[in-house]
């Protein structure tokens, strides 16, 4: 009987590796909670997101064995994250710059030009 490992290599990681990753995840959780207590504002949000990304990376690479997986499966998952970032980036770009466009008063640049010419008149 042929085993599946003859074709697609299944990686059996040592027990110690799982415990180390678990310890790291707990430590990072502690850090996130601790940083939120310090009240750092925007920096705090950035730290929380970076720590969450590191935790997600650890879970995906070690618990989900993505680091030993085929390049195609890695590409699939990384691809979904790339498209997620694209989705966030473009939407936030729109939200962040929407105030610059006013249909009744023209574009942001037009308004600036008008304000500048009014200043020149004074």
């Amino acid at each position: 009987m042929e085993s599946q490992s003859e074709h697609a290599e299944q990686h059996i990681a040592p027990l110690r590796m799982y415990l180390i990753i678990f310890g790291a995840l707990l430590f990072l959780t502690y850090i996130t909670v601790q940083v939120s207590v310090w009240n750092l504002g925007t920096v705090g949000l950035a730290v929380a997101l970076v720590v969450a990304a590191i935790k997600a990376f650890l879970v995906a690479s070690y618990f989900m064995h993505l680091k030993d997986d085929t390049w195609f499966n890695i590409m699939l998952f990384v691809g979904s994250i790339v498209f997620m970032i694209l989705f966030f980036g473009l939407t936030l770009l729109d939200l962040g710059t929407r105030g610059r466009l006013n249909i009744e008063e023209g574009t942001f640049y037009y308004q600036q030009e008008k304000a500048w010419s009014e200043k020149q008149k004074e």
């Binding site: 042929e2 085993s3 599946q4 003859e6 074709h7 697609a8 499966n73």
Partner: peptide
């Protein structure tokens, strides 16, 4: 064709 192929397809 094989268990290996079945395994890879399931994971994909």
């Amino acid at each position: 064709l094989s268990l290996g192929q079945q395994y890879s397809a399931a994971k994909l």
